[in-house]
Design a protein around this nucleic acid. Sequence first.
DNA 1: TTGTAGGCGTTATCAT
DNA 2: ATGATAACGCCTACAA
Lengths: 336, 336
Amino acid sequence: MTIKDLSAKTGYAVGTVSRALNGHPNVSEKARKIILKAAKESGFELNVNAKQLKQTHSTNILVIVKGIRNELFGEMVEIIQNLIAQTRYQLIVDYMDEDLNEVHRALQLCKEKKPLGILFLGGNNQNFVRDFGKIDIPCVLVTNDASMLQFHNLSSVTTDDLAAARCAINSLIALGHRRIAIIGGDRTISDTSRLRYEGCMRAFAEHDIEFDPKRDYQGVRYSCQDGYRATQALLKKSCQFTAIFAIADVMAIGAVRALWENGLRVPEDISVMGVDGLPMGDYLVPQLATICQPVSQLAKRSVEILLAAIVDGAAACHETVPFTVLSRESVRSIQI
Amino acid sequence: MTIKDLSAKTGYAVGTVSRALNGHPNVSEKARKIILKAAKESGFELNVNAKQLKQTHSTNILVIVKGIRNELFGEMVEIIQNLIAQTRYQLIVDYMDEDLNEVHRALQLCKEKKPLGILFLGGNNQNFVRDFGKIDIPCVLVTNDASMLQFHNLSSVTTDDLAAARCAINSLIALGHRRIAIIGGDRTISDTSRLRYEGCMRAFAEHDIEFDPKRDYQGVRYSCQDGYRATQALLKKSCQFTAIFAIADVMAIGAVRALWENGLRVPEDISVMGVDGLPMGDYLVPQLATICQPVSQLAKRSVEILLAAIVDGAAACHETVPFTVLSRESVRSIQI
DNA sequence: TTGTAGGCGTTATCAT
DNA sequence: ATGATAACGCCTACAA
């Protein structure tokens, strides 16, 4: 079943059929009705490949999600879906492995889907430096700052990772903590990990607190298990710290367990703080203190910025949306 | 950049270029080398649309994942990736919304990608009953039993949801529990929810335990928040139960919190058991008792069955892989 | 082994 | 408003 068959069936030429099916103007109400009815009756669907092969531009907006397992991205995709559904554009969501190059993927999908713009959820600045030049449609990098990259068509919307970590540490310091252990990520791979580490160091420096990374820092992957192991390692080296700051909630969850197994209670003996604001954190015992990324705002601003660029040709811009400190049960004051 | 350009560049005809690029036989070693080199140098990539438009069959295997948020599926996709990577096939993963029709989606993707077979991760039997007849390639439905459907090209690999729930209840009964509250899902929508509920009823019946669904059952959605709310509702009606069985770990997590807020400790006052075997369950305090789905086995058998059908034309079959009871800290014996 | 040419189903550009 | 027709980039007979 092709538009040719539909053309034969209705008596209209293929061109008219195509226009009717695509909602183009210059089709009489009568023709449109007849053609749409015939299409529906025969269960006809446009051949995507042929369509995309021929089309020079679409009304597609592309979201490339790097890291399927990231819960925040799941939430954001949903919000973006809803936002785009209210426009005349179509959203295409593409999930890809964390270890592949998202810019290559984007390039490929540009050829294939001819999108008007791209939203990158997660990404590695290095990949952008190398290959983004070949992309010429408006893009927004979400959760990674791209202001340094200076591409005229690449915006970014982020929370200030450095400030967030600094704020977390500061809030612990304000509660009287001086020896704070840190569970981080791989700073050589992840910009976020690097910035959060940097933020911690900044906070320590501001309060003249000496921090010994050899003793009080572990760099691991984003998982409960790694948070657990990191904490075991920290405890083995020294258990003089009064708080742990983990740069991801899942790590913090593992940390709480490890502490518990070593006879240390949270927050009575040790305070624990995470980052992300996972919905689940609210339901743990104790509730997990965390720095909450404003997921819906990130999504909203990203879409707005992308649409402005697509519709009005707005220039690239780089925005920061504010985080919030959720000081919940897993931290306590040790002020005298 | 098209194969025409490549043809001009290398002096070979487009036909030869196409054959070389696709690893077809009847291309001289010399030609292949020259063409591949030219392609690499110019960063050439085949136009997917044109290719798929023309192709009558591919070496694609398709995975349709229904429910992005399901953590188990995330794990399974990874395993499937690795398994397929060792074959001569290419894996295409498609994530779709929980509330859309996966068989429609499959039909669409069949036209577009011309896959040799499909793996459905999650799915609703009703959708299959209605529309699966139009699909004529081997398929495997994972985590939903399709034996009743009797399609010659639809296999299924499942854990026995009914038996799993029955086993969970039985294990609680064995520990001395008689009044067990249940947090379930929507039985009208989800086969899994229905079967698990059924399993619970079976266990109660076998032990001559009366179960009052009005009092001790709540049907909600799969989330911490819903588990929390369901538990609040249960407690409001009666707090005579000694255990809660939640048909998903995330619900169980919410339940623990709700109990705690009502001054009830787990497992001292109330035992809590979930289903799924989320990795995180191991790191909670208390560790969450659960029925563990054998994710890697589900994935492995599914792939094996699909490949057997594709390669050898093996008949459809319906397999059950065994679950395991993880009796962890969140349950305790109340035997006298 | 290599070249040639037709066609996949659609959109887009003309002309009507 | 509609019709005819030329691409889009590739694959695949078939011919050489």
